[in-house]
C-alpha cells in the first residue's frame, strides 16, 4: 500500500473506503448492484413502452420454407458480412431503400442486423434481383460481381432441405408469440413443397390462405386464433415458385433464396408518409 493511503486512513472524501475494501461481502454487494444499473435502465423499458416498435401494416412471420432459409442464413454466418438494418441517411436510401423499421425485424429470433458490411446491406434485397441471378451468385459470386469476396456456396443447391426440425422450430417460435397456428405447424411439409412449387400448384391456395394475410400481433397460450388483415388491405403476395430453377426437389438453395426474396418487401412504403409519426400505433386490423 502506498504512503498516500496510510496518510488518508482509508477515508476518501468522507467515504470510509477502508471499510469497503476490508470486507468481501460489502465490496461484492456494491459491485453486484452497481454493474446492473445501466443494463436495467437501457433494456427493460423498451419491452413496456408501446412506441418502441410502432406497428405498421404488412409485416408477417416467415413461411416454413423461408424460416428454413433463415436458419441457413444464420448457419452460414451471412450476418457477419451483410447487415439488415438500413440507417436513415440519403446514401443508404439511394443504395438500399427506405430505412429499416423496428417492426420489420420484430419476428426475428435472433435479430440479424449485423455489425459489418463487407458485402452490401440486404434488408431490402427481396425482388431486387431475379432468382436466376441468386442461383448464379450463390454458385459463383465473382461470375456476376467480379469484385466480390464472397465464398462460393456450392453446397446449398446440392443439399436436399432437411425439414426434420421445421415443426419444432415453429413450435418454439409460437411459444414466443410468433403467430403460427396449430394448423400452420401441422401443414409445414405441405406448405414447403407448395412454396417451392414441387407439388404442381396443388397446395398454393392453402399456403397463401395460411400466411399471406397474417397481421402483426400475438397468439395467446391456448388461443389459436391468428389476427389477419381486413379485406381492404392488400398484402405483399407470397413468392411461390421453384426458386433454384429446379422443381423436382426442395434444396437448401430453394429455402435460402425464398428467404432472401421476401426481405424488406412486407411493408408498402408510400411516398410522403413519415413512418415515425403518421402511421404510429394505427394497425390496420380486424
Amino acid at each position: 500500500m502506498s504512503e498516500e493511503y496510510k496518510k488518508g486512513k482509508g477515508m476518501i472524501r468522507g467515504i470510509p473506503h477502508d471499510t469497503i475494501e476490508q470486507s468481501l461481502p460489502i465490496l461484492a454487494v456494491f459491485v453486484a448492484i452497481l454493474v446492473a444499473v445501466g443494463g436495467i435502465v437501457e433494456i427493460v423499458p423498451a419491452f413496456y413502452l408501446d412506441d418502441s416498435e410502432p406497428a405498421v401494416e404488412g409485416v408477417r412471420p416467415l413461411t416454413p420454407l423461408e424460416l428454413e432459409g433463415f436458419a441457413i442464413y444464420r448457419r452460414e454466418g451471412c450476418f457477419l458480412c451483410h447487415s439488415q438494418m438500413i440507417r436513415p441517411f440519403r446514401d443508404e436510401k439511394e443504395r438500399y431503400g427506405h430505412f429499416s423499421l423496428a417492426v420489420e425485424s420484430g419476428y426475428d429470433h435472433n435479430f440479424v442486423w449485423g455489425s459489418k458490411r463487407t458485402g452490401p446491406d440486404v434488408a431490402r434485397l427481396g425482388e431486387k434481383y431475379t432468382d436466376a441471378w441468386h442461383v448464379q451468385h450463390m454458385r459463383k459470386p465473382r461470375s456476376v460481381v467480379p469484385e466480390s469476396v464472397m465464398p462460393n456456396y456450392v453446397w446449398l443447391e446440392e443439399t436436399v432441405l432437411d425439414t426434420s426440425r421445421t415443426a419444432k422450430r415453429m413450435q418454439v417460435l409460437k411459444s414466443m408469440n410468433v403467430p403460427y397456428s396449430n394448423d400452420d405447424i401441422a401443414n409445414f411439409a405441405v406448405d414447403i413443397k407448395a412454396q417451392a412449387a414441387v407439388d404442381d400448384g396443388d397446395g398454393e391456395d392453402d399456403l397463401r390462405a395460411r400466411y399471406e394475410r397474417k397481421a402483426w400481433g400475438s397468439v395467446n397460450e391456448g388461443d389459436d386464433t391468428i389476427v389477419t388483415w381486413t379485406d381492404s388491405f392488400e398484402p405483399t403476395e407470397l413468392n411461390v415458385r421453384a426458386f433454384d430453377g429446379d422443381a423436382s426437389d426442395v434444396t437448401e438453395l430453394d429455402a435460402l433464396i425464398a428467404y432472401l426474396q421476401q426481405l424488406g418487401t412486407h411493408v408498402h412504403f408510400e411516398e410522403g408518409v413519415d413512418y415515425y409519426h403518421d402511421k404510429f400505433g394505427q394497425p390496420y386490423r380486424k
Partner: peptide, 24 residues
C-alpha cells in the same frame, strides 16, 4: 434461448430487444 435441439436454438428476444441485449 429456447433450444430446438442440440444444434439450434432461438433467442428469447427478437428484433430491437435482441439487438439491445446482444450489444449489452
Amino acid at each position: 434461448c429456447i433450444p430446438v435441439d442440440f444444434t439450434f436454438s432461438y433467442s428469447a428476444y427478437s428484433g430491437i430487444h435482441d439487438a439491445m441485449t446482444q450489444w449489452w
